[in-house]
Each structure stands twice: as C-alpha cells, then as structure tokens.
Design a protein around this nucleic acid. Structure first.
Lengths: 186, 186
DNA sequence: CTAAATTAGTCTCACTTGCAACTATCTTAA
DNA sequence: TTAAGATAGTTGCAAGTGAGACTAATTTAG
C-alpha cells in the first residue's frame, strides 16, 4: 500500500496550460496524482464499500442496489410512498426504481395500493415478508458499516460525517443552479 | 433541502420479527436512515462529484471515465506502462481498460510500443497530442476539484484526506483477505 | 367544458461494463 | 524439447441502466 501520502503543499495550480514555468516555491501542478484526486478516490472508495456490502444484500438475499434502495426507503418511512419519491430521495432514475419495484413486487416484498386521490400514482409499502426481510437485513448492514468504519475512532467518524455533510450540501447548491430539474422536489 | 435530519428518536417500532432483545442502553437500530448510511452517502457523493466533473472531460473533450483514467495514469507517470498496470492501479477491469486504450489510440492520444522482453504486453504512453490534452485538462479538473472542496477549510480538506486514507487502507486489508486476486500486484 | 400542459409510471433502445472464453506469448517442469 | 500452466490483452455475450418516448391520469387555462 505504497500511497504517496504527500501533504499538499500550500501551492495552487498557478498559471495555466502549456507554460512549464514553475519554480520550487510555487510548483504549478501540471500532473495529477489520481490517488490524491478526490473524485477518483470517492469513486473508488464507494465502489469498494458497495462491493463489501453487496455480499450481505446481494449474495445472501438476491437484492441489487436499486432494490436495496427501495427496501431501505420503504422500511425507514412509516407511511407508504410513491416510486417518484423513492427516485428523488435516493437520486436514482425513475426507470431504475420502476424495475426494482417490479422485481420486489414479484417476490412479494413490496406491495402497492392505488391512490384514490391520484390514480396515476401508487403508494408503495413493504409486505409483512418485506418487513421481515428489512429487519433481518438492517442489523447485518449496520454491522458491516461499522466494520468498515472500525478503523476510525468515534470522533473521527463524527468528523467524517460532518465533512461529508458539508460537501453534500455544497454540491446540492451547485447542482440545483446548474441543472435545476428534478432535484428540488424532495 | 429538507433532509430528515431526524435525530433518531428513541422510539422505535419494536414488535416484529424474531428476537428484539435489546434495551435502551444499547438501542437496537432497527431502522436505517439511508442519508446517514455511509455506503449510500459515498455512492451518491461519488456519483454527483463525477457528474460535476464530467462536464470537463466528457462534454468538452469526449472522454469517458475509463478513458480519463488511462489518460491520468499515463500522464502522471513519466515512463510508459502496461494496460495491466493501469487496470490494477485504477482498479478498473482489464477489458474496460482495453476498450479505453483502443479508443484513445484511435484518436491518437495514446500510442503503444511493443515490449521486446515480453511480446504479450505493450508499453503505453501519451502521444504529443495526448500530452497536450492532458496538460490542458489537468488544470481544469484541479480547479473543479477545488471548487467542489471550496466548502471546506484547508484544515478540513486535510482532515478529509486523512480520514479517507484510513478507510482506504483498512478496506484494502479487508479485500485482500477476502478476495485475494488481482489486488496485490500494485 | 375542452384543450394544452403536467405528472406518475412503464417500456424500448442504445450504450456501458463485467465476465469469461479465446489467442498469443512466456514460464516452469519433466 | 515439449507439455502444462500462467499471463497480457481482445472480444462476444449478457445484464444493468439512463434517456426519452409513450400511456394514463390530473391539472390548468381559456
């Protein structure tokens, strides 16, 4: 695990493109180390964490990620909600949610009831079987999460959570202004 | 941004499934708030950050993520390296890297030279055009990264980096023991 | 009341990607 | 030297997914 843990010197990517004018004092970053590049790190970390978790919900219960997200959303909320809502709050495409819901209904984990007020939309909720699955799965996943985070102290976990909060919040703003579409709803 | 930041009220739906043997001192988390669940947060954040960056390399330069990873790896290293190496250190499947390399060769961004020592493998490197592209792209991406992280203080960024270091390191261990395959090489 | 616009959900299409088979090459051992 | 096994890279195939068209239902405007 030889990861050049180079502590970012207080230098910023000065100047621009071609000009290789850099001096020791303010080194222009002309190269980019993927291992220190946050977007790459996040992607890789997310993929690895997902894969570590998938053994719980995928291998054991045959759920894929979208299905797990539906299950998690319905299980967390006490009242039934629409597919649209799940799509919004998990930020998953509605067609993906639609397919996940179909699969879960097939397996009788989720059921839907018509909404008399608006017959385009269905209210989704867990069946008893779905509830049982949810309650069996949750402790496993939480344990796995703790296992992954066990390398951090309690304080560090709080710190990490807080830092992610900030980045998330800031991204939401950025995105809303850039592609203000279906993001504002939830 | 109404995110149910609900600090898990101490009231939980007891009852269901089997053993509910926990007491208040050690509250059994029977529900799981996706928004506080680290794997979900990482996935979502990584996706959003990627999408924020893709405007730089995708829309502007027509690179997809695997292609960008190849470019980044070759641009960072001073000496040519194999596709295998890129696959290992970016943790991307070799077939994906293979396709990305093909596309980049097609566009004359990457070229490969035979390795006389081992004619199965090719040494990959950026062409002059590839170098130029790399050097034009890097400042943009670094700027974007800074933009995304601008919600954090310098100290907080260091903290975040350090926390991710720890989690990454711990995951590498976990994975190596669990699925010790192509991970150990790099 | 009717027409246009909007919304929930489904479905088809195109694209991406991981897997695994395959080729070519190299290594090891008999 | 030859055969078996490993390795680098490519490719066919199948599964998953986002975009966007489409249907049905609702809302809004005239």
């Amino acid at each position: 695990m030889a990861r050049t843990s180079a502590s970012q010197p207080p230098a910023r990517p000065r100047s621009v493109v071609e000009a290789d004018v850099r001096d020791d004092a303010a080194p222009a970053k002309k190269r980019l180390d993927l291992f220190h590049f946050m977007p790459f790190r996040l992607n890789r970390l997310a993929a690895e964490v997902s894969s570590a978790l998938s053994s719980e919900y995928q291998a054991r219960y045959g759920l894929d990620i979208p299905e797990w997200r539906v299950l998690a959303t319905l299980g967390f909320r006490s009242d039934p909600c629409s597919a649209q809502y799940i799509a919004h709050c998990t930020r998953t495409h509605k067609s993906t949610i639609s397919r996940a819901v179909s699969a879960l209904m097939e397996r009788e984990i989720v059921e839907r009831v018509e909404n008399a007020d608006d017959r385009r939309e269905f209210r989704l909720r867990l069946t008893r079987k779905g509830q049982a699955l949810y309650e069996e799965l949750i402790p496993r996943l939480l344990r796995k999460e703790q296992e992954i985070l066990s390398c951090l102290s309690a304080q560090e976990r709080r710190d990490l959570g807080r830092l992610l909060d900030k980045v998330e919040a800031s991204l939401d703003l950025v995105q809303t202004s850039e592609e203000a579409d279906a993001k504002d709803v939830y």
